[in-house]
Amino acid sequence: MGEGGDIRVTALRRGEGLAAWRQIADGLEAEIRTGALAAGAQLPTEAALAARFGVNRHTVRRALAVLAERGLVRATQGRGTFVEAPRLAYPIGPRTRFSEIVSRAGREAWGDLIASAEVAAEAEIAADLGLPPGAPVLDLLTLHRADGTPISTARTCLPLPRFAGFDRAYAALGSITRAYAAFGVSDYTRLSTRIGARLAAAEEAARLDLAPGRVLISLASVNADAAGTRIQATRGLFVADRVELVVEG
Score class of each variant (00 low, 15 high):
residue 127 A to T: 08
residue 128 D to S: 14
residue 128 D to W: 07
residue 130 G to V: 05
residue 130 G to W: 05
residue 130 G to Y: 06
residue 131 L to P: 12
residue 131 L to D: 12
residue 132 P to C: 01
residue 134 G to R: 07
residue 134 G to A: 13
residue 134 G to Q: 12
residue 136 P to F: 02
residue 136 P to T: 09
residue 137 V to N: 08
residue 137 V to W: 06
residue 138 L to A: 12
residue 138 L to P: 11
residue 138 L to Y: 14
residue 139 D to I: 00
residue 140 L to W: 00
residue 144 H to I: 00
residue 145 R to N: 06
residue 145 R to E: 05
residue 145 R to T: 15
residue 146 A to Y: 11
residue 146 A to V: 09
residue 146 A to L: 03
residue 146 A to T: 03
residue 147 D to M: 02
residue 147 D to H: 02
residue 148 G to L: 00
residue 148 G to H: 01
residue 148 G to T: 12
residue 148 G to C: 03
residue 149 T to A: 14
residue 150 P to N: 07
residue 152 S to L: 15
residue 152 S to H: 14
residue 153 T to P: 01
residue 153 T to Q: 15
residue 159 P to M: 06
residue 161 P to L: 12
residue 161 P to T: 05
residue 163 F to L: 15
residue 163 F to T: 13
residue 164 A to V: 05
residue 165 G to N: 11
residue 167 D to Q: 07
residue 167 D to G: 01
residue 168 R to N: 12
residue 169 A to S: 14
residue 170 Y to H: 11
residue 171 A to H: 04
residue 171 A to C: 02
residue 172 A to I: 02
residue 172 A to V: 01
residue 175 S to D: 08
residue 177 T to V: 03
residue 178 R to G: 04
residue 179 A to I: 05
residue 180 Y to L: 15
residue 181 A to H: 15
residue 182 A to Q: 05
residue 183 F to N: 08
residue 184 G to I: 09
residue 185 V to Q: 03
residue 185 V to P: 03
residue 185 V to L: 07
residue 187 D to A: 15
residue 189 T to K: 06
residue 189 T to W: 04
residue 190 R to S: 08
residue 190 R to H: 01
residue 192 S to G: 09
residue 192 S to I: 03
residue 194 R to D: 11
residue 194 R to M: 12
residue 195 I to S: 06
residue 196 G to K: 08
residue 196 G to L: 07
residue 197 A to E: 14
residue 197 A to T: 11
residue 197 A to K: 04
residue 199 L to S: 15
residue 202 A to H: 09
residue 203 E to G: 07
residue 204 E to L: 12
residue 206 A to C: 03
residue 206 A to W: 00
residue 207 R to E: 10
residue 208 L to H: 05
residue 208 L to Q: 02
residue 210 L to T: 10
residue 211 A to T: 08
residue 212 P to K: 09
residue 212 P to Y: 06
residue 213 G to R: 08
residue 214 R to W: 01
residue 214 R to T: 11
residue 215 V to N: 08
residue 216 L to Q: 02
residue 216 L to E: 07
residue 217 I to E: 02
residue 217 I to P: 00
residue 217 I to C: 02
residue 218 S to G: 08
residue 219 L to G: 00
residue 220 A to I: 06
residue 220 A to W: 01
residue 221 S to I: 13
residue 223 N to M: 09
residue 223 N to Y: 13
residue 224 A to I: 01
residue 224 A to F: 03
residue 227 A to N: 04
residue 230 R to K: 11
residue 233 A to V: 10
residue 234 T to R: 11
residue 234 T to W: 00
residue 235 R to W: 07
residue 236 G to M: 11
